[in-house]
Design a protein around this nucleic acid. Structure first.
Lengths: 213, 213
DNA sequence: AAGATCATCTTGACAGCGTTCAGATGAATT
DNA sequence: AATTCATCTGAACGCTGTCAAGATGATCTT
């Protein structure tokens, strides 16, 4: 066979020397540990172990443990945006159906990845590195919610303040439900409502921010 | 002077032997550290240091670091309940004014004690030890919100499910605003609205759960 | 009042953590 | 082929949570 080295098709400028792509490997190892064992079980040494490198190796790609955590959070926000965009596309339908689907998708993402979601929140709280990026990309989670607010008539596109407030209010509602909805004490209520999904839909309905106007 | 030992008036059964009341001292030292330096700066050894005892001393009062953190969270919920009750009493006025005041008080508590609030949330999430207590006491934060929902006509007292849903929906809204409202990126928006308080009031209004019906 | 009991606190130790630094490795450049 | 330099390793530091063994002294028993 002819010399078939690693693809080298793209991202050549980011590929480090010794490992294939240690930076990416570390981020994914960290994500795996967070999802599997929780955020408090995330140690830099453990991540290095999982990636098969020495404890000091990560310091050539991240100045801090915090910086690695930030990268994991950023990855999480990208995933969240993708999930929401995919759900909008899947649902199609009316504006009212789509905006509700966005809220549900947000909350379900948090339900499915509670530790990752929590870590993502910590990232956006502790650093100002993330927020600008949230606004940047067209398909970011923030942009999706923002566009939905306008589309659903919950904010006048003429007033930037109105749009921002509507987006933030919706985001806060979703955040509250996303974080608290998983409490064990709500289990009987979920059952009484005929399932978890009805529970989340009902809470979203009562806050009213993911309803078309 | 006649033998004037410590008062011994009350709480005699809880007072330990050597220290005055090490358990309480540790909880308050931990609370101080969390409020002052943040939750990630909270170490059991640091708490012991602050209380002037050896690193192993806390293990005679808490089986875990986690158990101490839980006690701090419980204290926080008590404080929150007191603040909300005091605010209701202070405002008086109509039902509409009072229910809004509850939401504002909740959010401001989180603004003033962000690290403590975050820790409280972690407690109520990670353990089932706290939730039952939230329902128990008449003046607990949960009971206050619950009563307010009934009083404000946001839930029919005949339907337990309706009351619970209204309470949870309101709590989720307040939680979302409480945690996200402090983001640095919202500073310009706060200014545009003429102050932080207006910002919080507007978000509470848009979620609608702290409005009388 | 004297002795026994037992909760409380200290001392010392262990593994694991984040982080740093000097040196080894090997891909890229000259 | 020699050099450069990003990358990785090994060893070390002080910190952490936790535990076991011993000292302390308040309370209980007699």
């Amino acid at each position: 066979m002819t010399d078939t080295l690693p693809p080298e098709t793209d991202a050549q400028e980011n590929r480090p020397y010794h490992h294939g792509d240690l930076r990416r490997a570390l981020i994914e190892a960290a994500r795996t540990i967070v999802v599997r064992d929780g955020a408090q079980a995330l140690s830099l040494r453990g991540v290095a172990r999982e990636a098969g490198v020495s404890p000091a190796a990560p310091y050539h790609h991240f100045k801090d443990k915090q910086e690695l955590v930030l990268a994991v959070g950023k990855l999480g926000f990208e995933e969240l945006g993708e999930v929401m965009a995919a759900e909008i596309h899947r649902v199609g339908g009316t504006v009212a159906e789509r905006i509700t689907a966005i809220g549900v998708a947000y909350v379900l993402f948090a339900r499915d990845n509670p530790a990752l979601y929590r870590l993502m929140y910590d990232c956006s709280r502790n650093m100002e590195a993330l927020p600008p990026e949230m606004h940047e990309k067209e398909h970011s989670a923030y942009a999706i919610v923002r566009n939905a607010m306008i589309e659903a008539g919950r904010a006048s596109p003429d007033s930037e303040i109105d749009v921002e407030l509507a987006t933030i209010a919706a985001w806060c509602s979703a955040h509250g439900i996303a974080e608290m909805g998983g409490f064990a004490q709500f289990a009987p209520l979920k059952e009484a409502l005929g399932g978890e999904l009805n529970f989340y839909r009902e809470l979203l309905r009562r806050t009213g921010n993911f309803q078309a106007r």
